[in-house]
């Protein structure tokens, strides 16, 4: 069985959010980049766990991005996975990236494609569903659990107010989130091994983006906190009721 794990790159969660070029570009200067947490902590780690249980599984990592993404791809390889593929292109919009991923899946014959629930920078949560549609594969979004037995995957997914377990035959695309696995840190052996794992670079296929970011902005600042003393809880509730009108 072949698993493809889609890895994206995002600013560190504590990065300062600012924009340049007339608010049309994210200010990258001084920003630390990380593997998108959903891709690393859940999609990748779950794929590694599946391989630990069944060594016949092959795991490939896929990233659409420029040369400057190679450190995060190596970091992902240090956690696990047999080899990585980088599609050498600027990830312009979700559709463009999805088209690249679909092409790799088509030519590589993967049975299971894992993405994160969403990236923590653009919060689109779009690529998994788009890839599935491009390939006419079933898609399970917001998955909190995943098992594979033969040619059947059992996926637990979030629904409003609960969870549902579905069974689906491979191939399938699964969007991963918390619950699926526990985050790991790479060990020394993994880091050493990652240096020599293959990292193939391929060129993108043509795909016209469907959207573009016209401008970024920051939300208006809060007015500041109204502090009340510990013996004045009734006053707080009165304010919430009469001033803020939320109770």
């Amino acid at each position: 069985m072949k698993i493809l794990v889609c890895i994206s790159k995002t600013p560190d969660t504590t990065a300062k959010i600012a924009f340049t070029d007339n608010n049309t570009k994210f200010a990258e200067a001084g920003v630390q980049w990380i593997i998108n947490p959903y891709d690393e902590w859940y999609a990748l780690v779950r794929a590694i766990e599946l391989k630990e249980a069944n060594p016949a599984i092959t795991i490939h990592l896929l990233h659409v991005g420029g040369t400057d993404s190679e450190p995060i791809i190596r970091k992902a390889l240090a956690l696990g996975g047999d080899e990585a593929i980088r599609v050498n292109a600027d990830p312009t919009d979700s559709y463009f990236v999805a088209a690249q991923i679909a092409e790799v899946v088509r030519s590589g014959g993967y049975d299971l494609v894992l993405t994160g629930k969403e990236t923590i920078d653009y919060n689109n949560g779009a690529i998994g569903g788009m890839v599935a549609e491009l390939l006419d594969f079933p898609y399970v979004a917001l998955a909190t659990g995943l098992n594979v037995e033969g040619s059947t995957a059992t996926v637990k997914r979030e629904i409003e107010g609960g969870e549902e377990t579905v069974e689906v035959s491979l191939p399938v695309v699964v969007g991963c989130q918390k619950g699926m696995a526990e985050a790991r840190i790479p060990n020394m052996r993994g880091i050493m091994a990652a240096r020599t794992k293959p990292l193939k670079v391929t060129e993108p296929v043509a795909a016209e983006p469907l959207t573009l970011v016209a401008e970024f902005g920051m939300p208006p600042a809060k007015a500041g906190v109204k502090l009340l003393s510990a013996d004045n809880v009734e006053e707080l509730v009165r304010l919430l009721h009469e001033e803020a009108r939320v109770i």
Partner: peptide, 24 residues
């Protein structure tokens, strides 16, 4: 709605109808 169903459907419809998507 960008809820559990919309998160699975909107991207797929975007591809199927070649219609640009804004989620969230």
């Amino acid at each position: 709605s960008n809820n559990t169903s919309g998160k699975a459907l909107a991207p797929a419809l975007s591809v199927r109808l070649k219609a640009g998507l804004v989620s969230g």
